[in-house]
Amino acid sequence: MGTPVSRPLRRVVPTLNSAEQAGRALADLASGSLRPPPGRSYAALRRGQVTWPEPTLLARDAAVADAVWQGSVRLARLEAPPSHLDERRQESDHD
């Protein structure tokens, strides 16, 4: 946490990640100097260390992923591409 509250809070909750730790992890991931192990794609920073846990069920939900993408498109004021869920619905209509 990089807020003015984070330093005193870290004394009480020492497992909080610092802004420096988070920034370093993001830079390593973005630059490719830190790569996921085979079969992993989800990274989490735990106690200052990058870990590769299984994503939660919510993170693996296609409808949630689609909603996040569609929301991002609206926030960025981009033209929305068709939803991959719409394509699945059309395929199931033909079955």
Rank of each mutant, 00 (worst) to 15 (best):
S92R: 11
A63V: 12
R35E: 10
A30Y: 08
A80N: 03
P36D: 02
A59W: 05
P82S: 00
L26G: 15
L78S: 07
E54F: 05
V64L: 14
P36K: 02
Q90D: 13
E79G: 15
S33C: 11
S92C: 11
L57I: 07
T15H: 04
P8Q: 08
A59P: 13
D93A: 04
A22Q: 03
A76K: 06
M1L: 06
V5N: 12
Q49R: 14
Q21T: 07
S41R: 04
E79H: 14
P14L: 00
R11K: 09
A67Y: 11
S33I: 07
V50L: 14
R11T: 13
D66K: 08
R40N: 01
G23N: 04
S41Q: 00
P4D: 08
L34G: 08
W52H: 09
V50A: 13
A25W: 01
A67V: 03
R24D: 15
A67T: 07
D86K: 00
A65T: 09
P81F: 08
R40H: 00
R74G: 07
R77A: 15
R74Q: 09
L78T: 00
A25P: 04
L34V: 01
E79I: 05
V12W: 03
V12F: 04
S83Y: 01
S31C: 09
P81N: 02
H94P: 07
P82Q: 01
R40I: 00
D93G: 01
R24I: 10
P81R: 06
P8T: 09
A22K: 01
G23D: 12
H94Y: 12
L85A: 08
R60T: 09
R35M: 05
A44K: 10
E91K: 06
R88W: 03
W69S: 15
R40Q: 03
E91S: 04
A19W: 02
V64A: 13
A43G: 02
G2C: 03
A59H: 08
A63K: 11
V64R: 12
E20T: 13
L26R: 14
N17D: 11
T56F: 04
V12P: 02
D61W: 06
D95W: 09
R11L: 12
P55E: 06
V13C: 06
T51H: 11
G2F: 01
R7C: 09
L58G: 10
T3I: 06
L75V: 13
L75W: 15
W69D: 15
A62D: 08
G23R: 09
L29I: 12
L9Q: 12
V64G: 11
D66T: 06
A22Y: 03
R60F: 05
R24Q: 15
G2Q: 05
R7A: 13
V73L: 14
D95A: 10
S18W: 00
S6C: 11
L34S: 05
A62M: 04
A76Y: 07
D66A: 14
P53Q: 01
W69E: 15
A59G: 14
P8L: 06
S31P: 02
A67N: 06
R74C: 08
T56E: 13
A80F: 02
Q49I: 04
R88M: 09
A25N: 03
